[in-house]
């Protein structure tokens, strides 16, 4: 399947965590690259979305929306830097 990018997750992150993911910078735990998460590769299916590093393809995180709650895993990121908007 083809990927899109982190721009497509703006709505999911804004409503779940209240952060603007497209201008949030993250560092990949696998390769150490830092980049704007708008540039992450994102694979969306009916199950949820997987975010991968555009440099090394490691999984950065997963977001899955259920009926009662949303699961967010960002374990492939060392950190995220969220700008004050």
């Amino acid at each position: 399947m083809t990927h899109v990018d982190g721009n497509a997750l703006a709505g999911a992150f804004a409503t779940t965590l209240g952060i603007e993911i497209t201008v949030t910078v993250g560092r990949c735990r696998s390769c150490g690259s830092s980049f704007n998460l708008a540039c992450a590769h994102v694979f969306i299916t009916a199950m949820g979305a997987v975010m991968r590093c555009g440099h090394c393809q490691a999984v950065l995180g997963v977001i899955v929306r259920g009926f009662r709650e949303t699961l967010v895993n960002l374990s492939g990121l060392d950190y995220i830097r969220v700008p004050h908007l």
Binding site: G6, A10, G11, A14, T15, E20, T22, V23, N36, A38
Partner: peptide, 9 residues
């Protein structure tokens, strides 16, 4: 509808 979304592009 939800938005407007995105600050990067």
């Amino acid at each position: 509808v939800q938005g407007p979304l995105g600050r990067f592009f």
